[in-house]
Design a protein around this nucleic acid. Structure first.
Length: 404
DNA sequence: TCTGGGGTCCTAGGACCC
DNA sequence: TCTGGGGTCCTAGGACCC
């Protein structure tokens, strides 16, 4: 399989590109941030010097993305606003416009599927593509097609994207990192030792902070060092599945297909409060937020046509420790009241002495609403046809009895 | 001055059934 | 009175990703 991994840069507004700009901060506290919600217009009227600075930012947000000029200062995605302000106080801060992001994300993906239909969604700004069967997909090892897609995306969105081409998804994703933000990198199986092995193990998609740290403690830093380990030893240290997978990954082996369609497993809504709340002292506001989350979640489910039967809550204490509780119902639901009631029962099973910073509600074990309706009617048929079912069971027992 | 929101997948123990 | 395996479902937590 030949895979393609493409990711786009969601930062628009070329006039800001050379400046240290960060985007993020769900809870804006600086008034000017609102003004800056339309930077294209704003830059025409407001001198760049007057843009809101990270320095003035107060709140609990994190950074969604940053220009390369800002990244020079060590500022990056998922970093707390306050930490970023320390590193680069002069950076301009802009709010996220989620609607706009989704719009560009859809455009990015539809542009790709028009050229190469076998595409796997990997979030707003990333996709895998299998172009084995795309006409001309093999020319120059995929470079021709990659250029074509890159050009089409730029024409439709004005956004640049980086592309990696390799024999599988694992390597394609790594390759896409080589030439950011607007490059094309091709990695062949033979390039494993020269291009992949010198990289840090953390570059493998799936080795995160914890596994990276543990590997470092075991004196394994590069992918090459990981590849040199005995698989059995890796299994002993990381468990059967992870150990074996690590070994395969280090050798650039990955058989996962590009999956074009998948059903969601769960949906959730959560929120971090502006200030930590106490279950007793802030009962009223907490309860209102709780209900609101359930209502929004029910709307999400209904809008997308899903029902679920495992209702759960998540909360995070002021010490950042999280707990979850869930309960599985007998039947599927997308009803706000049912969700609220069941989530309420879950909440009662959790210690509430510490103050809370986050509350979330989740519905899992999802089923398409249409399929649930079908299952429901078959189930009632089974129930109404209860006698024949019981009869069949008895008959079967009778037959097995005869075996002994 | 701490650390968003939306997901997926894995593990592990216990209940329950055969 | 002690004791198999195997399978599935439920629950809680945690790692990881975008």
């Amino acid at each position: 399989m030949d895979a393609f991994f493409a990711s786009i840069e969601l930062l628009r507004y070329p006039q800001l590109k050379g400046l240290p700009v960060v985007i993020g901060g769900g809870r804006r506290k600086v008034d000017e941030l609102l003004l800056a919600a339309e930077p294209e217009r704003a830059t025409r009227f407001i001198p760049v010097a007057d843009f809101p600075r990270l320095l003035d930012y107060v709140g609990r947000g994190v950074i969604t993305t940053a220009t390369y000029a800002a990244r020079q200062f060590g500022v990056g995605s998922a970093m707390g606003m306050m930490k970023a302000a320390k590193l680069c106080p002069q950076a301009i801060v802009l709010p996220v416009d989620f609607e706009e992001v989704r719009k560009y994300s859809r455009l990015f993906k539809s542009t790709i599927t028009e050229i190469a239909p076998v595409m796997q969604d990997r979030g707003v700004d990333e996709v895998y593509i299998d172009f084995t069967d795309v006409p001309g997909g093999q020319r120059e090892g995929g470079r021709v097609l990659a250029r074509l897609i890159q050009k089409a995306i730029f024409e439709k969105t004005g956004l640049t994207c980086s592309v990696g081409v390799a024999p599988n998804k694992l390597l394609a994703k790594m390759a896409s990192e080589f030439n950011k933000p607007n490059g094309i990198s091709i990695v062949h199986a033979e390039d494993l030792q020269t291009q992949i092995w010198p990289l840090n193990v953390r570059k493998i998609n799936g080795i995160g902070p914890k596994a990276g740290e543990k590997l470092a403690r075991l004196h394994i830093h590069t992918i090459g060092e990981l590849a040199a380990q005995d698989p059995g030893w890796l299994v002993d240290n990381f468990g059967k599945a992870t150990g074996a997978w690590m070994h395969e990954a280090a050798w650039g082996r990955d058989e996962r297909p590009v999956v074009t369609e998948s059903e969601p497993v769960s949906m959730s809504r959560e929120t971090t409060f502006d200030r930590d709340l106490h279950a007793v002292r802030d009962k009223a506001s907490l309860s209102a937020i709780f209900t609101e989350l359930c209502v929004k979640l029910a709307e999400d489910l209904q809008r997308k046509g899903y029902v679920g039967k495992t209702i759960g809550i998540k909360l995070r204490y002021d010490n950042f420790k999280s707990v979850t509780r869930d309960q599985t119902l007998d039947s599927y639901t997308a009803d706000a009241k049912t969700i609220r009631h069941t989530a309420g029962l879950c909440l009662k099973r959790v210690p509430l002495e510490l103050r809370l910073r986050l509350l979330g509600v989740r519905v899992g074990t999802l089923l398409k609403a249409s399929e649930a309706a079908k299952a429901q009617s078959t189930e009632s048929k089974t129930v109404s046809a209860g006698v024949p079912v019981a009869q069949a069971a008895i008959d079967f027992i009778a037959t097995t009895d005869q075996l002994f």
